[in-house]
């Protein structure tokens, strides 16, 4: 039974968010922060949520995506704006693809927590390769705003770093949602969920477990690369290795997926909303104390709603006419 109706809920939420962001003064950046967190959660969810495997190296994929775009715009500026941007997206995808194939090829042979901890070295490895090997400017990073301004003019630069970057991120976020929905409805999705519940049984049933995991891993990683390219390189107009290969983003993404409900379509959206808004308002209300408050809240949520908010709602909505809208 194919069911794409939860996408209606998803698009509705995005529409409301964009309307709020555009309609109310000062809400656009906070909305973009929320969408960034949603996107990060959504892309991670495709792998983590569906397989139950934790990818600690996740942020490294955002990092290489960010570098792909930065290298194209910074080193191939002369190609012209559209070709350089296109190259940027291609490089972001390509780098993410290569990293995910290599890491997946090695680490996906491991089960459960072994996999999680094995991937923790990935982020550090890539960061120190760039730093130690002095690749792409090493620790000096790539600073783009001056280059872009000179090459394409101030107006274009401003357009790139505000309108285009934000639009790009929204597209990637929605795309991640659509792909999630597609996978949930496909053979791949059924296979993945089977292996999440019981990997050995799935194997016995003739599911090619390794291949399924690898596909989900690569898709998740490429989307992460695109998030890095839009939300970081284009929006911030600079890339520093210490800055993009920061492990806390991985953990934040996991928190979002868990809060919302792993393996659901709407989970990362709800998780991202709760997480980002909670943090944003705690920041304003209790400067410097927000993490101290957030941490116990998180523990309480884990203890009370182990399957996440959407997991809980989906259960609650079962058998009602809302059932097909929540997943």
């Amino acid at each position: 039974m194919r069911n794409y109706t939860p996408l209606v809920t998803l698009l509705l939420i995005y529409a409301v968010m964009i309307a709020i962001g555009q309609g109310i003064q000062g809400m656009w950046q906070p909305i973009m922060l929320v969408i960034f967190y949603i996107a990060v959660g959504q892309a991670l969810n495709i792998f983590l949520g569906m397989t139950g495997y934790v990818n600690f190296g996740y942020v490294a994929l955002l990092g290489v995506g960010a570098y792909g775009m930065a290298v194209a715009l910074g080193y191939y500026t002369d190609l012209g704006l559209i070709p350089a941007l296109t190259l940027g997206f291609i490089l972001a995808i390509l780098l993410a693809f290569i990293v995910s194939m290599v890491v997946g090829g090695i680490a996906l042979r491991l089960r459960g927590a072994y996999f999680a901890i094995a991937t923790i070295g990935v982020n550090e490895g890539i960061k120190y390769l760039i730093l130690g090997g002095k690749i792409w400017g090493g620790s000096s990073g790539i600073v783009l705003s001056g280059i872009l301004r000179k090459a394409y003019g101030a107006e274009t630069m401003r357009f790139l770093s505000t309108v285009f970057a934000d639009a790009g991120l929204i597209v990637v976020a929605i795309l991640s949602g659509v792909i999630t929905m597609y996978i949930l409805n496909s053979r791949l999705g059924y296979g993945l969920i089977a292996l999440r519940e019981d990997e050995d049984a799935a194997k016995v049933m003739g599911i090619n477990v390794r291949r399924y995991k690898q596909i989900a891993f690569v898709i998740s990683c490429i989307l992460a690369g695109l998030i890095g390219a839009t939300a970081w390189t284009l929006k911030l107009t600079y890339v520093f290795p210490q800055d993009v290969f920061a492990i806390n983003y991985t953990v934040e993404a996991i928190v979002i997926v868990m809060l919302g409900g792993a393996g659901t379509l709407l989970g990362p959206v709800v998780g991202g909303l709760i997480y980002a808004l909670l943090k944003y308002y705690l920041t304003i209300a209790f400067p410097g104390m927000q993490l101290l408050i957030l941490a116990p809240l998180l523990i309480i949520v884990i203890l009370l709603f182990p399957e996440g908010v959407v997991g809980y709602l989906a259960k609650a909505a079962r058998g009602t006419r809302f059932e097909k809208f929540v997943r």
């Binding site: 934790v54 953990v251 996991i254 928190v255 868990m258 941490a295 523990i299 182990p306």
Partner: peptide
């Protein structure tokens, strides 16, 4: 509980 839950709880405890 699933690995993920305890992992997250330990993360929150660390931050706290």
């Amino acid at each position: 509980a699933p690995e993920l839950a305890s992992l997250l709880a330990m993360f929150a405890i660390g931050i706290f």
